[in-house]
């Protein structure tokens, strides 16, 4: 009954100043569509139809590559909602995202929220390999429960390597079965929306951004390598998105001002 599906895509320069998609392979509930990019150099892929997946027991994966010099945006048509599924004995679901960004390549990985609905049990892993000159902008948002319901069980792990060395490794665990204290004053403090915005850019090597608070529950922090992470918690998805959008526009504008292009 449960689904095993791996969607794949690969972007590479088309030789005419833009980016081609030689591989674009949908699978199961993960339908990939090429959509019109507002950024002329970027190819854009939109994940559609993940609205009712994964169900407990599903094994979903996306493998994506932005080859050397490619410029790619991946986004989504709607939030991903982890659901319990029809039977109770199916175990947890997994959603594995594996991304490679090559030399001089740029990837914007901007999916919609991941919503952990009551009774669901999802382990999401995002593993990213960056070439030394790769740029990556990535957003992750976890929403604990749909409106007014208790959260499901959710673990996420975001691991980023740059040139084979660890750059960021973060694991979050919430909901039933998570170790104690996840809702308490050290971890979420009762907030129901958690988000990360990650930007790796070689220009940070020479000009790292200073750490800065983005309000009482969000901070922009430079990592030990050339990257920044925005960490935010908020009462709900909308408030979280406001914080991350503000940070996103500021970061991209800052880079435009620095490099004279996008």
């Amino acid at each position: 009954m449960s689904v095993r599906a791996t969607a794949r895509l690969r972007a590479e320069p088309d030789g005419r100043g833009s980016t081609a998609l030689p591989l674009l392979e949908s699978a199961g509930p993960l339908a990939l569509r090429r959509t019109r990019s507002p950024l002329p150099e970027h190819a854009r892929v939109t994940v559609v139809g993940a609205m009712s997946a994964p169900l407990n027991g599903d094994r979903l994966a996306i493998e994506a590559e932005a080859a050397d010099g490619a410029r790619l945006t991946v986004d989504a048509a709607a939030a991903t909602v982890a659901l319990p599924g029809p039977s109770t004995d199916t175990g947890s679901s997994t959603y594995a995202i594996h991304v490679n960004v090559g030399e001089g390549a740029t990837l914007y990985w901007l999916p919609e929220q991941l919503v952990s609905s009551h009774g669901s049990d999802l382990h999401q892993t995002t593993r990213i390999e960056l070439a030394p000159t790769a740029r990556l902008l990535l957003r992750e948002e976890q929403i604990l429960g749909r409106h007014g319901e208790p959260t499901g069980a959710l673990t996420t792990r975001l691991t980023v390597h740059r040139a084979g060395r660890p750059l960021l490794d973060q694991q979050l665990a919430y909901g039933p079965g998570a170790p104690g204290g996840w809702d308490g004053p050290a971890v979420l403090g009762g907030h129901r929306a958690v988000g990360q915005l990650f930007l790796a850019d070689p220009s940070f090597e020479d000009a790292p951004l200073p750490a800065r608070l983005l309000g009482p529950t969000a901070a922009l922090t430079p990592l030990a390598g050339p990257a920044v992470l925005v960490t935010a918690v908020a009462a709900d998805a909308r408030l979280l998105r406001e914080i991350l959008d503000g940070a996103l526009h500021e970061l991209l504008d800052g880079l435009k001002a620095d490099t004279g292009n996008s």
């Binding site: 691991t159 694991q171 050290a186 971890v187 958690v194 750490a211 608070l213 529950t217 901070a219 935010a232």
Partner: peptide, 14 residues
């Protein structure tokens, strides 16, 4: 493991 606590990270900066 890489278990992390968002509020600890945010409030440490503050």
């Amino acid at each position: 493991p890489a278990a992390s606590a968002p509020l600890l990270d945010i409030t440490a900066e503050a």
